[in-house]
């Protein structure tokens, strides 16, 4: 098993475990409260509107939007960490078959690992400070690393000898 293969397989297992632990923590301590808050805000907005309290209704819609902003990103982080981890494990089994030398394979694996960690990290940091340029930059840099690594793997798999 090459260094690239080990990096992807063990990195993938570690990332999957981390993603699951994050999901468990989220499901137990955060998700229900967030869903209650979202549903509650929306229902409150309509009830306030029915009582003709329009400013309160608009405030409740704004609260719904803010909570949903966080919810979408929190769920995305969980699914992207685990999804990328599974992809890393599978590609770790196959990467030694690519038409590249060991050094290039290692750099591809490293890019994929760093991208898979950093991209969702940037997304979750957006919930700490909505519209943060640093968090968005981190997410973009991470996804760019994943895209470059995947493009290189497509070439490597397509060019491998029979």
């Amino acid at each position: 098993m090459s260094a690239a293969s080990k990096l992807l397989i063990f990195g993938g297992i570690a990332l999957a475990a981390f993603g699951m632990l994050y999901g468990l923590h989220y499901a137990v301590f955060v998700e229900h409260q967030t869903l209650d808050s979202m549903g509650g805000s929306l229902a409150t907005a309509f009830t306030n509107a029915a009582d003709r309290h329009l400013p309160e209704a608009h405030a409740a819609v704004a609260a719904y939007g803010e909570t949903k902003y966080d919810y979408v990103r929190q769920v995305d982080v969980h699914s992207h960490w685990i999804g990328l981890a599974m992809l890393m494990i599978v590609l770790g089994v196959a990467i030694d078959g690519t038409a590249f030398g060991e050094r290039i394979r290692f750099w591809i694996a490293l890019s994929l690992l760093i991208g898979a960690v950093v991209f969702p990290l940037g997304v979750i940091l957006q919930t700490e400070s909505h519209g943060s340029a640093f968090a968005s930059g981190l997410a973009i840099a991470g996804s760019a690393l994943v895209i470059v690594a995947l493009a290189a793997l497509v070439v490597g798999f397509a060019r491998q000898n029979a």
Partner: peptide, 10 residues
């Protein structure tokens, strides 16, 4: 102006 109707719809 029917809050209980809102609740039923939700």
């Amino acid at each position: 102006q029917n809050p209980s109707g809102v609740k039923a719809a939700f």
